[in-house]
Computed example of a mutant assay.
Amino acid sequence: MNDVLLWLIPLAVLVAGGGTAALLVPRSRRQRDLPSGTVLERPTTATGDAAAPAPAEAPPAAEVPATAADVEAVPVEQPAPAQGRLVRLRDRLARSGSPLGARLLAVLSRDQLTEDDWDEIEETLLLADVGAGPAGELVEALRTRVRVLGVTDTQAVRALLREELVRLVDPGMDRALRTAGDEPGQPGVVMVVGVNGTGKTTTVGKLARVLVAEDKKVVLGAADTFRAAAADQLQTWGSRVGVTTVRADRDGADPAAVAFDAVRQGKADGADVVLVDTAGRLQNKAGLMDELGKITRVVTREAPLTEVLLVLDATTGQNGLTQARVFGEVAGVTGIVLTKLDGTAKGGIVVAVQRELGVPVKLVGLGEGPDDLAPFDAEQFVDGILGD
Rank of each mutant, 00 (worst) to 15 (best):
D3T: 04
W7Y: 07
L8A: 14
L14S: 03
L14Y: 04
A21C: 08
R32K: 11
P35N: 13
S36T: 09
E41S: 12
T45S: 12
A46H: 08
G48Q: 13
P55Q: 12
P55C: 07
A56E: 15
P60V: 13
P60R: 13
D70G: 06
P75L: 13
A80Y: 10
A94H: 00
R95Y: 04
S109Q: 14
R110M: 14
Q112L: 14
E122S: 01
T124G: 11
L127H: 06
A128D: 09
D129H: 02
A132N: 05
A141Q: 13
D153V: 01
Q155W: 02
R162S: 03
R167Y: 00
V169P: 04
R178M: 02
R178C: 04
T179L: 12
T179I: 14
E183T: 01
V189Y: 05
V190Y: 01
V192C: 01
G197H: 03
T203F: 02
V210C: 15
L211N: 05
A213S: 14
V219M: 13
F226Y: 15
A230R: 08
V246E: 14
D249G: 11
P255M: 14
A257E: 07
A257N: 03
Q265A: 15
G266D: 04
G270N: 11
V273G: 04
V273F: 01
D277T: 03
L282M: 14
Q283K: 06
Q283V: 00
M289V: 00
D290V: 09
D290E: 15
E291G: 00
K294M: 13
T296C: 10
L305F: 09
L305C: 08
T306N: 03
L312F: 02
D313Y: 02
T315C: 10
T316P: 08
G320K: 04
G320T: 04
T322Y: 07
V326P: 01
E329L: 06
A331Q: 05
I336N: 04
V337H: 05
L338Q: 03
G343Y: 07
T344M: 04
A345K: 00
I349N: 01
I349M: 00
R355Q: 15
E356H: 00
P360F: 06
V361A: 08
K362V: 09
G365C: 11
L366D: 07
L366M: 15
L366C: 08
G369F: 06
D388N: 10
